[in-house]
Simulated assay, not measured.
Amino acid sequence: MEDRSIQVNLCTSRKEKPKSDELQFGRTFTDHMFVMDYSEPAGWHDPRIVPYQKLEIDPSAMVFHYGQSVFEGLKAYKTSAGEPQLFRPEKNLKRINHSNDRLCIPQIEEEFALRAIQQLVELEKDWIPEAKGTSLYIRPFVISTEPYIGVAPSRHYKFMIILSPVGQYYKEGINPVKIAVENQYVRTVRGGTGEAKTGGNYAASLKAQELVSDSGFAQVLWLDGVEKKYIEEVGSMNVFFKIDGEIVTPALNGSILEGVTRNSVIALLNHWNIPVNERRISMEELRQAHKDGLLEEAFGSGTAAVISPIGQLTWEGEDMQVNNFTTGPVAKKLYDTLTGIQYGRVEDPFNWIVPVGSQVYSKAQ
């Protein structure tokens, strides 16, 4: 893309911002959004920030019929000094290109995309809530827009970024939740799209979640799609277990999404010299560990919730309570450290934080 400048068209009237204690995840959106188009042979072009608005799109746009779409999720946080900052955005942009490759979508220049995020967040920084546990959710996504009903990669796309002020993803916060182990449905299989962040994976997960939600379960624990015995993810998060002093998490196998928070958790555990092992783990092994009193903690990790402790796993009619349904010390330390780094309250030994401010904004022009 030759023209790296981003045109800015400011809105003429501003929305009323919600109160911090009234925030619902993903329900409110800021005044502006970023848009960039792709067409052959021009490539990615016309990057712009415009007022948040509805899209005009042809009913035959390929995204509606063949599902060529990918997305990411990251957050902007406000420090005690009022400065906005991002947490490891380069990992999200690298992953969106990994997803693009799997869905036959053209690659996006990651450095430029980061500048677009920084410029948009700087423009909308007054939307970043300051109450505890709140942040500005950032949703970059790509959709195929060519008006054509034919099974082939699209020749036209939109790359967009929208922003949403959010509170805690789970009303339970850092408190443990109940999880049902899913035996009937599967999220994805190796060779499918499980390691890509695409909408179809999440649509496929809705049925199982719907069936267990009335019984008080927050999420389902997904098993592998072939043997239905090995643990993969929990809801839309990666999952960790502390078994006899060692942290175990399912190894990336082609059907598990490589989470940015997952990567950060593993880095912190190694930094603290806490044993961590990425490997296959079966539900039968987990049940035996619980029976032997060796299952000490369980928790999910993801951008939205950061760390979500698991207080109970229910599998084949058996309820396995974890740590007396209380948050374990490792999960608590991970949550406090990750959120501390994100909000600038504790030291960042990994240089994970990327600033957003007037200096960065002027460079992005």
Rank of each mutant, 00 (worst) to 15 (best):
D319L: 04
V186I: 15
F87R: 03
V212M: 10
T261L: 10
I247H: 00
T326A: 14
T12F: 06
I179F: 07
T249A: 01
Q119E: 13
M237N: 05
Y185T: 09
H290G: 08
S301M: 08
F240L: 05
A251N: 05
G150R: 13
E318R: 00
R280Y: 04
L211Q: 15
H65C: 02
T327K: 08
V121C: 07
Q118D: 11
K228Y: 01
N201P: 00
K94V: 11
T303H: 09
F159L: 15
V226I: 00
T134L: 11
D348E: 12
L114P: 09
S362R: 15
V166F: 09
S60P: 05
E284P: 04
Q184D: 13
R345M: 10
K291E: 07
A196G: 05
E232Q: 02
I266V: 00
Q209P: 04
S144V: 09
L294N: 06
G302H: 07
P349Q: 15
W352R: 13
V306W: 15
L334G: 08
Q184T: 08
F241Y: 05
E210W: 06
V189T: 11
T198K: 00
M283I: 11
A305S: 15
V142F: 06
V260P: 04
T198A: 12
F159K: 11
G259M: 03
E146D: 04
D214N: 04
K178V: 04
I117L: 15
V121F: 09
S264I: 02
L338N: 14
R102Q: 14
S20N: 14
C104H: 09
E296H: 02
S301K: 07
N323T: 00
R102H: 12
I247R: 01
G43T: 02
W272H: 06
V151K: 03
V306A: 05
E284W: 07
S264F: 05
